[in-house]
């Protein structure tokens, strides 16, 4: 409904975010720490991708920078989230003009989609642990 209501925000469905959300909803547990790290990884990946594309007009060079920086970032936060790589390459293929706010959209989408998954998972967990509930 959000997507219908804000039709202008056509960039809303950012593939890597959907992918991470889908992976997370199949996990048995989904603690807040993982949620936070996922958001952090994806947003930083998006920023790396946007900046490297902006600074180096050459696609190959900016991809090289993307790969190095994303690998370093994943090493720093010790969280293997492969869609981060996809996220850093995504600005290259998006239709122009939307680059400036890309990081912001990603942050927003992450919070909405992954936040939903988190709430859903944890509500389920609470309702399971409640005794005497038929």
């Amino acid at each position: 409904m959000i997507c219908y209501a804000m039709n202008w925000m056509f960039i809303a469905a950012i593939p890597p975010v959907i992918v991470v959300g889908y992976e997370s909803i199949h996990k048995d547990v989904y603690p807040a720490g993982i949620f936070g790290k996922q958001v952090l990884c994806l947003v930083v990946g998006a920023l790396i991708g946007t900046l490297s594309l902006y600074l180096f007009k050459n696609l190959l060079l900016s991809a090289l920078i993307d790969m190095v920086l994303v690998t370093a970032w994943i090493g720093i936060v010790k969280f293997k989230l492969t869609p981060t790589y996809a996220m850093s390459l995504l600005p290259m293929v998006l239709p122009g003009s939307s680059h400036t706010y890309f990081g912001l959209w990603v942050l927003l989408m992450c919070l909405v989609v992954l936040g939903f998954v988190w709430v859903y998972k944890n509500i389920r967990m609470i309702s399971i642990s409640l005794p005497g509930r038929s």
């Binding site: 696609l59 190959l60 090289l64 390459l89």
Partner: peptide, 22 residues
């Protein structure tokens, strides 16, 4: 890098598939 190189050679950004790299 081959994928991105191909996109530059053919001058067609649709060849770049971010998820494939993931």
């Amino acid at each position: 890098f081959l994928m991105i190189g191909a996109a530059m050679v053919f001058n067609n950004r649709e060849i770049i598939l971010p998820e494939v790299s993931a």
